[in-house]
């Protein structure tokens, strides 16, 4: 016999994303989805960011990788609660994986960072319930990438232009990147950052703090 289901699984996935979002609201957490190509510097950015924001906001991190726990170990070394997810082949996190990771994390924090699997295509398509989407885009990837991967950039709330310390070694100028981002990510705040030298980290952290304030309109420690 034949049983017709015609069941849309994406709708199920959207419901889980919505549940994650509600959970963030209830707990007063701002959740940031960090995406970018493999090696763009997502974990390095977190390593530069967490020491500044963790003492004030209480941060937690979900690390998504196809395999290995290396990035999770790098975050744990900073004393920040972290859950490592291994997708076992899938090229992006889905909301159910994030929901499961949330079960493992302690409460009380105000900021959650989700480092998505290194990939500029699929993570942009999948709503995991986070409040802000940030693309980490390194200068070594070349300024054509926002036009080749427009979805990720067009949906980003912020773009971190990473590894700017390497610009002197490339035949490219900072303006080449800012121009293309102005076209492909017109709504995004753009932060040139070097996790290596610390350049730009202050402005990036100030943006995150402003997002928490906008979302909950009261400063940390009062909620």
């Amino acid at each position: 016999m034949k049983v017709i289901l015609a069941r849309d699984l994406q709708a199920a996935s959207e419901r889980v994303a919505e549940a994650n979002r509600n959970r963030f609201r209830q707990h007063g957490v701002l959740a940031i989805n960090l995406m970018g190509s493999p090696g763009a510097g997502k974990t390095a950015l977190l390593e530069a960011t967490l020491p500044r924001l963790h003492p004030r906001y209480g941060c937690t991190v979900v690390e998504g990788d196809i395999a290995t726990t290396r990035d999770g170990e790098r975050i744990a070394a900073l004393g920040v609660p972290v859950v490592q997810l291994n997708t076992g082949g899938a090229c992006h996190l889905d909301p159910a994986m994030v929901a499961r990771a949330l079960e493992e994390l302690p409460g009380g924090g105000r900021l959650l960072f989700v480092e998505n699997v290194g990939n500029l295509v699929c993570p942009a398509e999948v709503d995991i319930g986070t409040d802000r989407t940030v693309v980490v885009f390194s200068v070594t990837e070349g300024p054509d990438k926002p036009e080749k991967y427009p979805l990720a950039f067009s949906r980003a709330d912020a773009v971190v232009l990473s590894k700017v310390d390497l610009l002197p070694h490339l035949d490219l100028r900072r303006e080449d990147f800012l121009d293309v981002l102005g076209r492909c990510a017109p709504a995004a705040a753009v932060f040139p950052v070097s996790a290596r030298t610390g350049e730009g980290v202050d402005a990036w952290c100030a943006w995150i703090e402003a997002q928490v304030t906008n979302q909950y309109s009261h400063p940390p420690g009062e909620g």
Partner: peptide, 30 residues
């Protein structure tokens, strides 16, 4: 994905298909 439409220059053509995820039917013995 293309940044601009090659035919008319409009920005960011949208993804129209390719995100489907559906269980259509199953077959079996009852």
């Amino acid at each position: 994905p293309v940044g601009r439409c090659q035919a008319c220059g409009a920005a960011l053509p949208r993804l129209q298909s390719g995100l489907e995820l559906r269980v259509d039917y199953l077959e079996g013995d009852d």
